[in-house]
Structure formats: structure tokens, C-alpha cells
Simulated assay, not measured.
Amino acid sequence: MRLKLAQASMALSLFLPVYFMVAALGVKFDLWSWRVGLLTLILQVGLPLFGLSLILGLVALVASLVRKPRTGWKMALIGLLIPLLGLGYAGALRQGSGDVPPIHDVTTDIADPPAFSATVMAARAAVDANPVNPMSAPMGSLEAYKGPEFSAIAAKTLGEVGRGAYPDLRPLSLPAEPSKVAAAAVEEAKAQGWTLVTTDPASGVIEATAETFWFGFEDDVAIRVRPSPTGGSIVDVRSTSRVGLSDLGANAKRIEAFLAGLEARIAAS
């Protein structure tokens, strides 16, 4: 009986990573909606399975060690370690989410952010995506942030919250002329693995869609290249998630990576 318990514990713990991967990739490949994949399969079903695996692993390990012959303890240990590692990963994610504000729309220019085209806005509307709010909008006026849990940021604007969390996210000044920078921006967007939507180097407007690996969540990116009053170019970027309240800092990291790559590309040219 103890051996069977240890085997069941290990089998369930090995099944869990596969289950979570299938739930996430099913969203990516349009087998089911993100609500089904994230809210139902992972949160409603996956988390109880995770808890069951943790308890079963602990019981199996104790049962296998409490008396001789101590058979199956290695399998039981595996059955306990896998959910413990998952618990540690979930804890790290939770801690990381507490370090960033619950926003999903950031830009380098909060006073005059790049605007999304009608094409992008139509694509967002087609999937019932998050609204694209003005950076000047007070958080408390936005429907998603009207709960008491957001009282600390209610009086701040969306732009102010983003700027407070990511103070280094600023327009990028480059010495090259706008047409050259815009062409380089197109190449850098491709290098980042984004799907280009609008490419108009002549006007300095580039739009793209970035997709996350596991769930295939899509975030829209608007890039604007303008002449600098002092010569050269000014580059601004806005990155906005289609789903989810908090992006866990993903949009800011995306903009930072893009600007760093663009700056290196111009420097090397």
C-alpha cells in the first residue's frame, strides 16, 4: 500500500507540469480561450490538483519512512519536490507582482504617447481586449480600478503610475536622421520576434504585435520616430496588453529591450 501511494504521488506530480503546459499552449494554439485556459484549467482545476499533489507527496514520504521496509521513499520524495518547486515558482511570481503596479499599458512619453492606428484598435475590439485609456486618466476613473484595493493609486493618472514604477522609461534620443532610425526600428522589431502591423518609415510610424510564449497573449506596440529639435531623432514607444490587469512588468521590459537593441543597431551602422 505504501509503495502504491508513493507511485501515485510521483505519477501525479509528473502529470502536473504536462497539464499546466497543455493548458497554456492550448490558449496559444486557439484550442480554447484564455479564460478557459487560465481561469478554468489552471486556477479552478490546476491549483486544487497542485494542492492534492503536495499533500499526497508529503503523506507518501512520511508513510514510506515511518517504518521498515522503507520502500518507495525516493518516488515519494519526487512526488513532494515537484509541487514544492512549483510552489516556490508561484511565490516568486507573486512577490514579483507585488513589486509592480497592476497596470498593462506603459509608454516612454506619458504627456504625448504614441497612438494606435484604427487597424490595431479594430483588432483589439475584435477580441474584446482591454481598453486603451488616456495616460492622463485618473486611475480611479477607470472601470477596472474602481475597487477599494486600488485606493492607493486612485488619484494618480495612468501615466504617473507607470512613470513612478519605471522612471527610466524615457524617450530615446539618437544622432541619426529619422528615416534611418525608423528603418532600423523596423529591423529591430523583427529581431524582437514581433509581428509587424504598420511600417511607414517615411512618417516614422511602426506598429507591431508581440506574443508571449506559453499562452500566446498578444500585446500591441506603437513606435514613433520624430525629428529632434536639436538634430537627430526622438523615439517613443507604447506597449499595451490586450488581456489581463497586471502585466507583471512585461511591457516595460519589452520597451527597454527594444530601445537598447535599436540604440546598439544605430551605433553599429
Score class of each variant (00 low, 15 high):
G232N: 02
D168V: 03
L38E: 09
F20L: 08
Q7P: 11
A126F: 04
G86W: 04
R163Q: 11
A182K: 07
F150Q: 08
V197G: 10
T40K: 03
L142Y: 04
L81T: 15
G244E: 04
V62E: 10
F215S: 12
P167L: 02
A122Q: 05
W194L: 00
K180H: 06
K28I: 10
V181K: 08
P17R: 01
V27M: 13
I206P: 12
V197F: 02
A202P: 14
L65W: 12
V237G: 04
Y19G: 05
I223E: 04
A24D: 11
F215I: 02
S246N: 02
V221R: 00
S13E: 07
L58W: 14
V27A: 10
L16W: 07
S117D: 01
S117N: 13
G244W: 03
G164Y: 09
L49H: 15
R254L: 02
L47N: 11
A118D: 12
Y166L: 09
V59F: 04
R226T: 13
A125C: 13
A267L: 09
V100N: 04
S241L: 09
F217E: 05
V18P: 13
V66F: 04
N251V: 00
R2T: 11
R163W: 06
A268F: 01
R170Q: 15
P227H: 02
L93M: 15
A63T: 15
K146Q: 13
Q192W: 01
L52S: 02
L3E: 10
A208L: 06
H104V: 00
A123P: 14
I103F: 03
A123L: 13
D200F: 03
R226W: 06
A191L: 08
G147I: 05
Q44T: 15
K146T: 03
R67E: 05
A191F: 04
V127Y: 11
M1S: 13
S241W: 06
L47C: 04
M139V: 00
G261S: 02
S239G: 07
V197P: 04
N130V: 03
I103G: 13
S53W: 05
I55V: 11
P131W: 07
M10N: 11
R67K: 15
G46V: 08
A23N: 07
T198F: 08
A126L: 00
K253E: 07
G57E: 09
P229Y: 00
D219Y: 02
L14A: 02
A115R: 12
A154T: 08
L169H: 12
A122F: 03
A24Y: 11
L65S: 06
L25W: 05
R226C: 01
L196F: 08
L49G: 05
Q44K: 09
S203E: 13
T209L: 12
L49P: 09
A185H: 03
V100Y: 01
A267P: 01
A191Q: 08
Y166N: 08
G37P: 03
V36C: 11
L3N: 03
Q192H: 04
A155W: 01
R2S: 05
A185I: 03
G79A: 00
W214Y: 06
V221G: 04
E160V: 03
L93T: 12
L81E: 05
K253I: 09
A185W: 01
V27S: 05
A144K: 15
V205G: 09
I55M: 06
S269K: 09
F116Q: 00
M10V: 06
K146Y: 00
G232L: 00
G193P: 02
R2M: 05
L84V: 06
P114L: 01
L38W: 07
